[in-house]
Structures are given as C-alpha cells and as structure tokens.
Amino acid sequence: MSDAIVLRQINKTFGSKRAVIDLDLTVPEGSLCGFLGPNGAGKTTTIRMIMSIIFPNDGKIEVLGRKSAIESKDRIGYLPEERGLYRKMRVGSFLAYVARIKGVKSPTLSHTIKEWLDRVGLADCYKRKCEELSKGMQQKIQFLSTIIHDPDLIILDEPFSGLDPINMRLLRDLISEMHQAGKTVIFSTHVMQQAELLCDRIMMIDRGYKVLDASLDEIRAQFDPRTIIVEPIDPGADLSSLTSLAGVREAVQSNGAHELTLEPDADPAETIRRIVGSLPVRRVELRRPTLEDVFIELATSGDESAKSREDLRHALRSDAEAPHA
C-alpha cells in the first residue's frame, strides 16, 4: 500500500521559535490516524504545511503521490482549526461555493448537498443564512464543507472541539464511515480519549518533536501495564501497608480505588498475588495504558518527578471533554 502523506526532515521556525523540528511522518493510504499533542505542540503548523498553506524552512513533503498539496488540493478535504463561514451566505450556496472552488462540476451538486444536510439533521437549513445557525450547527456545516467534494484524504484540525456529546458521536460515526469507505483520515486532537476510540494509528508530537508514530496495537504492546487498581471490600480499610509491598513505587487514591504504580523492574503478576494475600479486595485490575499515560510517559521521560507527571495529566484533562461512547 502506498502512503498518503510523507514528511521528511521538516523544519519550521517562526522568527526565533522552532515550531516543528526534524519531523519525519508517514501516513499510509486508508488509515485513520490521530495526530496528538498538547496545545502548542506544533499540530496545526504541521497540518498547514501538509496543506501548503505555509511552507517549511526545509524538508520534503509528499501528498497523495504529488510534490505538494497544491497539485492535489481537489482530492483533499481540510477542516481548519480556525473555522469560518460567510455569515451572510445561505447554507446551500456556501456549500455549493466551497464545492465549486474545489473543482466539483457535477450538475447534481445541490442534490448531494441536500442529502448531506439531511444526514446531519439540518435538512431544513438549506436556505437559511449561516449567521442564523447555532454554533454546533455551524460546526456541522463546516464539516460538510470539508467533505462535500468527496475527497480521498481528509484532514481535520481539532474536529471535536466545542461539540456536544450527541454531535460528537455523529461526527465519530461519519469519520468511521469515511474510513471504511477506504479514505485516509487524519485528525488532530489534544483529547487522547477521542483518538483512542477511533484511530488505528497514532502520531504524537510535543514541543515540535515527534515522540510517537505507530499503530495503536504496536503502542499497546510497547507500553506494558505498570498500574494496578485496587478496591478493598471495606472502603475504610487501612491501605498504608500496600505502599510497603515489594515492587510498588507509590499509591494514589482516586474515586474510592487505589492506583498503585509499579517499580520499573517489578513483575505485575507477583505483585497482584501479594496484594490479594494482604487484604480482601472487591476488585484488583492490571490497567491497560491509556494514550494519556503513554503521552505522559514519553513527554516526561527523563523527568521522574511525580509532580510534573500529575501537572501534565491535569493539563491534558482540563480542557478535554470526557469521552462519550
């Protein structure tokens, strides 16, 4: 299978700030790829470079087999992070306009637009002005403007931000559908849970550097579980003894349960046996690492302090919407 996007040694600086550093990236055709990283990591800059809206200082970009996105713009659907509509334009004409400047020549375009509006529950909005719509409705129109010309490569910059749970699910379904239809989808997000639910491939960048680029399965295999969740039968039980067990580095209480972080060389199976032997438990679980854990692991590698990890975890969650399956 060929690659939809290839980036080789991309560098981009704004003034003295290095936004993207020596970035290598490969997105295989047909994959559904999450592009992760905290705010300011360089996601939007990278996407804009892929779109040839801005240009790297050096490095090579290949999009859909062409030297730049300019040559294949019509086959790409792009939802910018900064979204906009023509406030005074009617929804139908706006979508038609976007489709036409992306080279759609079909005479049945208005029919296609109506079908899509129906699909996202905005069938009655065809003739309404964009400014009359609510923010969530506008966002759906923006998404439609991204895919209305039936692109092969879809790039979405923070598509979930600002959506309510129902629309979030709708959007997730639409993305999955595109993926199943064989299209390549990339979306950036700083909400790790979204990526975890949808993607088959994850790229992570942090402060301009790539920290991860692998399939979800590879990631799960690579980062073995290091956290055990313990919930005693008696909520008031004294658990101070757990921290002194061999192999346990620290214990943190959260939501009535206790998360035990293991020493790097500890054997999880052996530790669980010891926990069960020391007190009666309602639940003991070896937790699979979430992307959040992986990201924190990668972003703070070399920095062992628990405080900096917790700060980062907090930062990641503070502006992230909870996942709604």
């Binding site: 779109m51 809206i53 300019i70 713009k73 019509d74 790409i76 792009y78 910018p80 900064e82 979204r83 906009g84 509509l85 023509y86 406030r87 976007v98 400047i101 992306k102 923006q142 403007s145």
Partner: peptide, 17 residues
C-alpha cells in the same frame, strides 16, 4: 477583513492559492 476575521480564509486557502 471579514474573511480573515471569520476565518473563512483558511477554508478558501485549502482550495485555492
């Protein structure tokens, strides 16, 4: 200015130079 401040400009730039 309107296109820029309403951010439509990026949608347009994904289609044309």
């Amino acid at each position: 200015i309107e296109e820029k401040s309403s951010r439509v400009i990026e949608v347009l730039l994904s289609a044309v130079s």
